[in-house]
């Protein structure tokens, strides 16, 4: 499989008339792991949701393309079928729909009609991935995210990642709410995906995730755009020193969106 590239150029995103993302630029290619760090309220989730096509966000300027195809012209499901994936900070609960039924429908949505995944093959794949993520098999028959603990929801997001094998994934705070063991297990799952055909953008607040998944690039987001980029050592410095030195360096008073003077 060949590497895909997601290109985000000068992206501006508004919600309810308020601009949250202001000129965001990034290129993510297969084989690369990017991490975005940044204080609360700097537009990280907004960026992720907008790229995936969340209906509440309006893109007022800029472009997003996947291997040259205009992503912004696509419906949400078309983006998914084109190979994009978003692990959400707060995944929805869907009552009455089992995780397994949902995933089978999702996998089949990625395939041609008449070429549905054979049930046995699906079950095997599901079993294997649930084992990787150290998930009890009962989760496959439970209703999607319903009553799942915070950590269980996150695991379930990664299960979906492993099942759907996207080309480019955005993981929004996949580590929040995970205990140390779960963090290892989830990182292991993501590392299994690493390779030429998989590019990933990890949004996180903590270096600890990046101890397990070493990023190729680390970006700091403030005021709705990337204000600094570096390699894995940048994350370590942020962990040790916080964000103040960057703010000083760049003369930023308040890093949050909409607070800039």
């Amino acid at each position: 499989m060949t590497a895909s590239t997601l290109t985000i150029k000068d992206l501006h995103v508004e919600i309810e008339g308020k601009e949250i993302v202001k000129g965001f630029n990034l290129e993510i290619s297969g084989g690369e792991i990017h991490a975005i760090m940044g204080p609360n309220g700097t537009g990280k989730s907004t960026l992720a949701s907008a790229i995936m096509g969340h209906p509440s966000y309006e893109i007022t300027k800029g472009s997003v393309s996947l291997d040259g195809e205009d992503v912004l012209e696509m419906e949400v499901d078309e983006r998914a079928r084109a190979g994009m994936f978003l692990a959400m900070q707060y995944p929805s609960e869907v009552t009455g729909v089992t995780t397994s039924d949902f995933l089978r429908t999702a996998i089949n949505a990625h395939r041609e009609e008449g070429d549905e995944i054979p049930l046995m093959k699906f079950i095997k794949k599901m079993d294997k991935n649930m084992e990787t993520l150290d998930m009890n098999e009962q989760f496959s028959t439970r209703y999607l995210n319903e009553g799942f603990s915070g950590g269980e929801k996150k695991r379930n997001e990664i299960l979906q990642l492993l099942m759907l094998e996207p080309k480019i994934a955005i993981l929004d705070e996949i580590d929040s709410g995970l205990d140390i063991d779960a963090l290892k297990v989830v990182s292991n799952g993501i590392n299994n995906m690493r390779g030429e055909s998989f590019g990933c953008l990890i949004i996180t607040h903590y270096q600890r995730l990046l101890n397990y998944i070493t990023p190729d690039h680390v970006h700091v987001m403030m005021q709705g755009r990337i204000v600094k980029s570096g390699d894995a050592s940048l994350a370590q410095r942020l962990e040790a020193e916080g964000y103040d030195w960057i703010k000083e360096e760049l003369g930023i008073e308040d890093e949050r969106v909409g607070q800039e003077a």
Binding site: D77, A80, R81, F85, L144
Partner: peptide
Amino acid sequence: FYMQSRGLSTLEAERLIIHGF
């Protein structure tokens, strides 16, 4: 949005939600 972000069309997502309901 959640379901569609996994590749389900509007119709399929609605169908699952209704059956689930």
